[in-house]
Simulated assay, not measured.
Amino acid sequence: MKKYAFLFPGQGAQVPGMIKDICDAYPEARKVVDEVSKITGVNMAELLWESDAAVLSRSDNSQLAITTASLAVIKVLESKGIKPSAVMGFSLGEFPALYAAGVLSFEDVIKVVRKRGQIMQATCEKIAKENEGHAPGMTAVIGLSPEQVTAITKDIKDAYPANLNSPVQTVVSGTADALTELEAKAKEAGARRALRLAVAGPFHSPLMQEAADNFEKALADFTFNNPDKILFSNVTGKQAKDAAEIKKNAVLHLTNPVRWTDEEKVLNDLIADDKDNEWELIEPGVGSVLSGLWAKSGYGEEIKCVSVNSAETLANY
């Protein structure tokens, strides 16, 4: 029997014109775009297809756009009889995963993502204003293990491992001074590159605590359900089964690292233990970052991960 795991991409995957070809080819995808417009009051067709990269890069826009794209693709896959048995998402991608796992309704996941994007954008703008020309941010360290990078950050004030992407790539959040120190020490330790990222803020670190506090208040009005599919958590790197824990982790998510390498291992172990079924991994929505990380994880030789991000790739199913 064929089983599927869906891996949902995070912020940064957005591109102008995203999923236009899919919506032209599949009415169910266009219906998602229209429904999100009704729920939010945002003209999603205009945001997705007429905005430039700068407009789409804002957290309040990109988070809604990427989530809409992921939901549109999974609706098309569903119409083809393809449903996931397991789901996980990278950072923002955890929210379409919550929908796919039955934790949040369609309307609620859109409202939650809208709130999250607005709150994060406001916090990033405040941080930038308070630190004009010297704002906190994120640096990608390439060529060192997550353990090596974590060890380096322990000796640097206000530097925090934020995205544990792969065995040789870790993203660190921190103040401007902390990241400058990190970049020098990482290169001394043998990193191939230490690249400052063009992001709006120091995501997944304690520097986002104000956003987490505001998001916790915003979530008070939403009901989370126990998942009806296998669901993994960025915060723990493990399977998540309890609605209350999942809701708590949605808040912790903003100030804690994305333990993606842990999630990949747990998913791979799950698949390895399932001798009776053949598994395929699908990255639904925009881009191919997670497919690339999976290919480099050491697990990709046995199990493929396919980016489904166009009408052409959807036509293969």
Rank of each mutant, 00 (worst) to 15 (best):
K126A: 11
P227A: 14
N43S: 12
V112R: 10
Y26E: 12
K157W: 04
I271E: 02
T255E: 13
V149G: 06
G10Y: 01
S173L: 08
H253Q: 15
A315L: 07
F95H: 13
L207H: 09
R114M: 09
G41A: 00
W294P: 00
G117Y: 06
S297C: 04
V258E: 09
S291Y: 06
H134Y: 09
A97D: 03
S37I: 03
V308I: 11
G298D: 04
S291Q: 12
N226S: 13
N225P: 00
G81A: 08
S166V: 02
D262C: 05
E302H: 14
F106Q: 11
T180Y: 06
V15D: 09
R192P: 06
C23D: 08
E35W: 02
P84L: 04
M1Y: 07
K157P: 03
V76H: 04
E302F: 09
D60P: 00
Q239Y: 02
A128D: 13
G174H: 03
A211W: 05
V286M: 08
V112F: 04
K129Q: 15
G93E: 05
A189C: 04
N165L: 10
E301T: 15
L195T: 05
T223I: 09
V55G: 10
F106T: 11
A45S: 15
M138V: 13
G298N: 13
W260N: 11
A135E: 15
D52W: 11
P202K: 02
V141P: 09
T170H: 04
V141M: 10
S57C: 14
Q148D: 14
P84G: 12
Y4D: 04
V33N: 03
A100V: 01
L182A: 04
G285P: 10
P146F: 13
Q209S: 03
S85I: 01
D108V: 11
D177V: 05
I142A: 01
S62R: 00
R30V: 03
G298R: 12
N256C: 14
R196L: 12
V33T: 06
K241Q: 07
P167R: 01
K20A: 15
